[in-house]
């Protein structure tokens, strides 16, 4: 059985191809202006990595993410909440809380032992606490996203960023730079500010060990370290790229639905 999951986010498109329950190929690409194009590009890359030659070899495809409705060849589309939960849980079955920080939204998901969603909180109305916030900060500091992420750049005395709004926070950061505050302390302050926001969201859902961080911003080591301090618990290391959790979950759903469909067809034939 060969299935695929496509996660079309605002900043990146992700795809995972699974063969008989194992990840055969995965890809992450920057989003284009056309979701359909993004889907095609990222899926083709994942197909190639899986050693396949064509989309026709895939038995079932499920899409998720903001652009999920735009993929005509997907059998169905599902919420990214359930897909992220499922994907992260498949990677590490002991995960019970998923904190996903994407390009334009962030969410906290409480996961059951079976990998289903128990509760979630999502911020998709505001850039604060998302990849967009980090982009704005990186712009203000002229250091690039890698600069904000690297552990060696995290100062020991984080300078608090009081503004939640990324627009005002950008101005605040510029002011701090002009005031001569150490760059490393500003960077640490930025990560701490996002971590605080995520912690508030997480507490409303309830933080239950083990905790995973997914999404593009999970690669920000400074954020991960700040979050661990705030939630007072270690973030579990995922054995696969955390950015593919949503696409992985979608492919797992694709497999489940395909199995169910085949079973129903078999029963219908037997009758």
């Amino acid at each position: 059985m060969i299935v695929a999951g496509i996660d079309l986010g605002s900043a990146t498109g992700k795809a995972v191809v699974m063969k008989n329950g194992e990840i055969a190929g995965a890809a992450v690409l920057s989003s284009t202006t056309n979701p359909h194009n993004t889907a095609e590009l990222v899926l083709n890359q994942a197909i190639e990595k899986a050693g396949l030659s064509s989309i026709n070899q895939i038995d079932n495809i499920i899409s998720t993410g903001y652009g999920r409705l735009n993929i005509s060849y997907a059998e169905d589309n599902l919420s990214e909440i359930s897909c992220h939960a499922k994907g992260a849980h498949w990677m590490v079955p002991s995960i019970r809380t998923v904190i996903d920080v994407g390009g334009q939204d962030c969410k906290v998901i409480s996961v059951s032992p079976k990998g289903t969603v128990l509760e979630f909180k999502m911020n998709d109305r505001c850039a604060a606490g998302t990849g967009r916030f980090f982009e704005a900060m990186a712009r203000a500091l002229c250091c690039g996203l890698d600069g904000i992420s690297a552990m060696e750049n995290q100062g020991d005395d984080p300078c608090p960023i009081s503004n939640q709004c990324s627009v005002f926070a950008e101005s605040e950061v510029v002011t701090l730079v002009n005031d001569g505050i150490k760059l490393e302390d500003i960077i640490a302050g930025i990560n701490m500010s996002v971590a605080s926001r995520l912690t508030s969201m997480s507490r409303r859902v309830g933080i239950v060990d083990e905790v995973a961080l997914t999404g593009g911003c999970s690669k920000n080591l400074g954020l991960a370290a700040a979050l661990e301090k705030k939630i007072k618990t270690k973030i579990v290391h995922l054995p696969y790229d955390p950015q593919i959790a949503g696409a992985l979950g979608a492919s797992l759903f694709a497999a489940e639905r395909l199995e169910l469909r085949l079973q129903n067809e078999k029963e219908a034939v037997n009758q």
Binding site: S112, P113, K114, L118, E119, G206, V208
Partner: peptide, 12 residues
């Protein structure tokens, strides 16, 4: 209630 549902694995 939420924690009870969580223990039961049921969304609330």
């Amino acid at each position: 209630m939420r924690d009870t549902c969580r223990d039961l694995g049921v969304p609330f």
